[in-house]
């Protein structure tokens, strides 16, 4: 049976992981490859690396990082952050990335999804969507949540699917950072409307939240950052708990 996926997310700046990372037995908690390998051994099913570097050197740094990760890790990974055009993606795939995540650029120019899907296959294209609820409607935001758009979450997610997205990574900005659980109602609605997998992001605070996101939220994968980085929830214990709850997971 297809397992529900547990995905730690690592934020990268200038080739180093940022945000607090509190992992024991790491020589250098800033090294994304070392941290990724640690998560892989701990039982992570997949990894997401999001680059928040703002310099024009970004493309080369990101491709170098993808190459390093691909060389050392034997589980799949997605890489993203500031991808705007085909050439960005080409470099990443040649470096060995399994998937790329696109966000603002896809909203600004939706045909980018078609081009990537046609050029590299649907499975390479993860469309990340940041959204916030306002008067009972979910609206899509850009630039890390700073710019509101007219796009509604469900319409945009559906359009992304029709254009060739292989997965949707949905972050609820209302839940992100709260550690009070995922946006399960919106996730379930999204999952029912789409025929591609949904990665849930934003709100993970404990093991129970993951059980809820896979049952009530009908998500295919659960993504989190700080609770894994700070060791608040271990991936091994999380998976044992989910298995006990009858949720299919890949045992560690």
């Amino acid at each position: 049976m297809l397992a529900k996926r547990i995905i730690p997310c690592l934020d990268i700046k200038d080739g180093r992981t940022v945000k607090g990372v509190n992992f024991v037995n790491l020589r250098d908690a800033g090294d994304p490859v070392e941290l990724g390998a640690k998560y892989s051994l701990a039982g992570a099913d997949e990894l997401v690396f999001l680059d928040i570097t703002a310099t024009h050197e970004r493309r080369k740094t990101l491709a170098d990082l993808a190459r390093d990760i691909a060389r050392h890790l034997n589980i799949p990974f997605t890489i993203g952050g500031g991808i705007r055009e085909l050439a960005d993606v080409d470099a990443l795939l040649n470096a060995g990335a399994d998937k790329v995540s696109i966000n603002s650029a896809a909203v600004r120019r939706p045909a980018l999804i078609d081009e990537l899907a046609y050029g590299f296959g649907n499975q390479f294209v993860v469309v990340a969507i940041d959204a916030k609820e306002k008067d009972g409607e979910w609206y899509v935001y850009l630039n890390g949540g700073r710019v509101q758009t007219e796009h509604k979450l469900f319409d945009w997610a559906h359009e992304a699917q029709e254009r060739g997205a292989g997965e949707i990574l949905f972050t609820s900005m209302d839940h992100d950072g709260t550690k009070a659980g995922f946006a399960n109602a919106a996730l379930a609605a999204l999952s029912e409307r789409l025929s591609i997998p949904i990665i849930a992001s934003g709100g993970a605070g404990n093991k129970e939240h993951f059980a809820e996101v896979f049952t009530t939220g009908k998500a295919d994968a659960g993504l989190a950052a700080s609770i894994f980085h700070f060791g608040e929830v271990g991936i091994g214990e999380l998976k044992s708990y989910l298995a006990q709850e009858g949720i299919p997971v890949r045992p560690v």
């Binding site: 049976m1 297809l2 397992a3 996926r5 099913d45 997949e46 649907n122 499975q123 292989g166 997965e167 789409l194 025929s195 591609i196 997998p197 009908k218 295919d220 994968a221 890949r250």
Partner: peptide, 15 residues
């Protein structure tokens, strides 16, 4: 073909 909540592509870990 998508079936009973199973989505396409088949993506992830399976036994």
């Amino acid at each position: 073909r998508p079936n009973n909540g199973d989505k396409v592509p088949h993506m992830g870990w399976n036994n």
